[in-house]
């Protein structure tokens, strides 16, 4: 049995079926590249594994280290060793990165980590990602550039030390230098801890740095082709057209998933009453 085992997974968003019977196995030390045109279910798969309440699993199973993931709450999945580096990390005003990370680390320990040890660990991780030292004291992602948010996701991953990490377009918003720094941090951690990885990216350059051991193409809610790193290269040079021909599936981009901006304020009012929604 694989460490992460997904069988016949069907997932709906707002009543619309996005994943239509997906199977996937991921073991430690494996790096899986997840490809496919936009809107075919890559982000949905990662969100469903992490338990985002907007995504409803209607059929199938997900197990992680033999445990039924679908029965776990989001925080339980995190504490079990799953991590999702998000495409659009949320901003939370008034909560510092360090307070957040400390709470997150302590949530998985019996005894809280000594403060000094935590500070040292956070500082060295921030340094490794070549971010400014004041990151720890800034509010969580608030006012961060796109690239800073992505790097901060990797800071979090390094501090939380997951068994299996999923990275959703973690390379978008990064310039060439930042891309290298982030990729190096990911690879180091993956090697050190024999971590399993599922990576969603549109860029061959990022995959070159990450060096996937497995590659999959997700079309219309199913994995239609699986292979090794050479699959990434072929898609980079030839696109998805050949898949249509060879596998007889229609490959099309389904309306781009719009970034969900951090909607904290639902509305503004003068003298009106808004009751809890």
């Amino acid at each position: 049995m694989a460490q992460l085992e997904i069988r016949n997974l069907h997932v709906e968003v707002e009543g619309k079926e996005i994943l239509k019977g997906l199977n996937l196995d991921v073991d430690p030390n494996e790096v899986h590249a997840l490809m496919g045109p936009n809107g075919n279910g890559k982000s949905t798969l990662l969100a469903a594994i992490m338990g985002n309440p907007k995504f409803t699993v209607t059929q199938g199973s997900i197990t992680f280290e033999g445990k039924n993931v679908l029965e776990m709450s989001v925080d339980e999945r995190s504490r079990a060793g799953l991590f999702l580096g998000m495409q659009y990390p949320q901003e939370v005003a008034g909560v510092t990165n360090s307070d957040f990370m400390r709470a997150a680390i302590n949530a998985r320990l019996d005894k809280p980590m000594p403060l000094f040890k935590f500070i040292k660990e956070m500082e060295s991780t921030i340094k490794e990602l070549q971010m400014k030292p004041d990151l720890a004291h800034r509010f969580l992602n608030e006012g961060f550039s796109g690239g800073e948010k992505k790097r901060n996701e990797i800071v979090q991953m390094k501090l939380l030390k997951p068994t299996l990490a999923m990275l959703d377009e973690i390379d978008s918003g990064l310039d060439v230098d930042a891309l290298k720094i982030v990729a190096e941090a990911i690879v180091n951690m993956q090697k050190e801890r024999s971590m399993g990885l599922i990576v969603v990216s549109h860029y061959e350059r990022f995959y070159q740095l990450i060096q996937p051991t497995h590659a999959h193409v997700l079309v219309d809610g199913k994995i239609v082709v699986s292979g090794d790193a050479s699959l990434v290269k072929r898609i980079d040079s030839e696109g998805y057209d050949w898949i249509e021909k060879e596998y007889g599936v229609k490959v099309e981009e389904i309306s781009d998933e719009k970034p969900k901006t951090a909607v904290f304020s639902l509305g503004s009012c003068a003298a009106s009453t808004k009751k809890g929604a």
Binding site: D75, S78, F83, M86, P89, Q90, Q156
Partner: peptide, 27 residues
């Protein structure tokens, strides 16, 4: 002036790092 409730996206984000719903809301 703004009136809001706790955003589901924020809650999911904090919980996905291991905080319970209570701890995330509190934060």
């Amino acid at each position: 002036a703004t009136v809001s409730k706790i955003s589901e996206d924020q809650l999911f984000y904090l919980m996905s790092r291991g905080l319970t719903k209570e701890a995330a809301t509190e934060m």
